[in-house]
Simulated assay, not measured.
Amino acid sequence: MTTMNAVAEAVREAAVAAARAVDRLGVRNGNENEHGEDSGNNGNNLGHLERPMTLATFLKVKPPKFKGTLVATDADNWFLAIERSLRAQHVPEGQHVEFATYMLEGEAEHWWQGIQRLLQQDEGDIPWNTFKDEFYKKYFPRAARDAKEMELMQLKQGNTTIAEYARKFDDLCRFSKICQGNPADFEEWKCLKFEGGLREELMNSVVPLEIRNFAELVNKSKLVEECSKKAAIARADRREASRRDLIQNLAPQGRNFKFNGQFDRQNRNQRNGNFLARNNGNYDNNNLGEEEGGQSQQTQDISVCSRCGKDHGNRACRYGTHTCFSCGEYGHISRNCPKGLFEIQPGHNNKEGFLP
């Protein structure tokens, strides 16, 4: 009887174990989708990390392609982007090189085919770190990284805005050996370096604040820059107002005065007209000046005829009368004078006998 009871107990335990196994199998099948991939219902979600992933699944995130470049930062940007894509799809580490190199095209693809033959002599998988070292050795060598670090050390704000300066500063920091590891270890260094590159008028306002958080430092610098711009505009407006007041005070009294240089232009044109009038009078008078009639320049300017615009002294103006300038008779000109007289009257063209 005891033996039969022991056998029955063993059968019941076997049945319970079989039922539990069936239950576990059903749960596992429920967590997999129609493509055999884990649906994510498992609490610890570790099954999909252990199974290989198909290339089609990886391409769903549209990872970037790389055709090769002469710009080192472009190569670095691509590598960082492909790493994000691999992490986003939870690609197993053993497939990182396979999927990443699938995105190489053109010159980059030819380069990798040659490197792959050298690295796979033992037919084993190429580690991700090995691919990374070879990629950076080709497209972002140490000399290029050193040049970027030197550019960071010499970076100044110059004529750029705070936003542009901070963007360039952050971009160069990722290539610096100082800015590697835990950000808290080099946060103060970044702040000091950033302050040292600011323009003098901004530096004088920002440095006394002693900000040692980089994000806060950039925001405060932007505020100071904005206030500085507003102050500069206000100063310019005050200078312009002072200049206008000065010009108004210097304007002649009792005249219609307009700004923007109109009064100055009128005075200047008037002076030029007087100067030309005096010169024309001197030229037509054969530059006789004070030698003819003993009159001064001022007297000649006053005695200019209002009818012909010339200076002919005390003689009557014969302009337009068709009168001989030699004998004074009407009907002929001086060159055809029957009396044979030919007298030059100042201020007139005696070749024709009268002014046209």
Results as ranks from 00 to 15, higher is better:
143 A>V: 15
163 A>C: 04
6 A>N: 07
146 D>S: 12
94 G>S: 13
321 T>V: 08
356 P>H: 08
306 S>M: 08
310 K>H: 10
241 A>V: 03
69 T>V: 06
108 A>P: 00
264 D>L: 12
141 P>E: 05
193 K>N: 05
90 H>M: 10
26 G>V: 09
293 G>S: 11
347 G>F: 05
350 N>E: 09
170 D>N: 15
102 Y>L: 03
274 N>I: 12
18 A>L: 14
31 N>R: 14
204 N>I: 02
245 D>P: 00
47 G>Q: 12
225 E>S: 10
157 Q>K: 12
189 W>S: 02
331 G>A: 09
302 I>C: 08
339 K>V: 01
200 E>L: 08
325 F>L: 13
288 L>E: 06
185 D>M: 12
297 Q>E: 02
176 S>C: 14
127 P>V: 05
326 S>Y: 01
340 G>V: 03
151 E>Y: 03
15 A>I: 12
332 H>D: 02
83 E>D: 12
306 S>Q: 11
135 F>I: 04
271 R>T: 06
290 E>Q: 14
257 F>S: 01
132 K>A: 03
45 N>V: 13
118 L>F: 10
275 F>M: 08
255 R>T: 08
248 Q>D: 04
269 N>A: 13
219 N>H: 09
307 R>W: 04
245 D>G: 00
26 G>A: 15
95 Q>L: 09
59 L>G: 00
321 T>G: 05
121 Q>I: 11
80 L>N: 13
90 H>T: 13
255 R>D: 04
270 Q>T: 11
219 N>E: 14
85 S>K: 10
192 L>N: 06
318 R>I: 05
96 H>A: 04
217 L>V: 02
1 M>W: 06
333 I>G: 08
217 L>D: 01
224 V>P: 00
146 D>I: 14
256 N>F: 13
10 A>C: 05
94 G>V: 10
239 R>I: 01
283 Y>E: 08
308 C>V: 01
272 N>R: 14
329 E>M: 12
146 D>F: 11
309 G>W: 04
78 W>I: 02
70 L>Q: 09
306 S>D: 09
177 K>R: 14
98 E>K: 12
185 D>R: 14
244 R>M: 13
114 G>M: 09
335 R>S: 10
164 E>K: 09
104 L>N: 00
328 G>F: 04
201 E>G: 01
138 K>V: 05
213 N>M: 07
23 D>L: 12
39 S>V: 10
303 S>E: 11
207 V>W: 02
197 G>M: 05
166 A>M: 01
260 N>L: 15
315 R>M: 09
54 T>K: 12
299 T>D: 14
77 N>M: 09
354 F>D: 09
137 K>A: 10
328 G>E: 02
39 S>N: 15
70 L>R: 11
56 A>L: 11
327 C>V: 06
326 S>I: 03
78 W>M: 03
109 E>I: 00
7 V>Y: 05
42 N>L: 10
78 W>Q: 03
141 P>L: 06
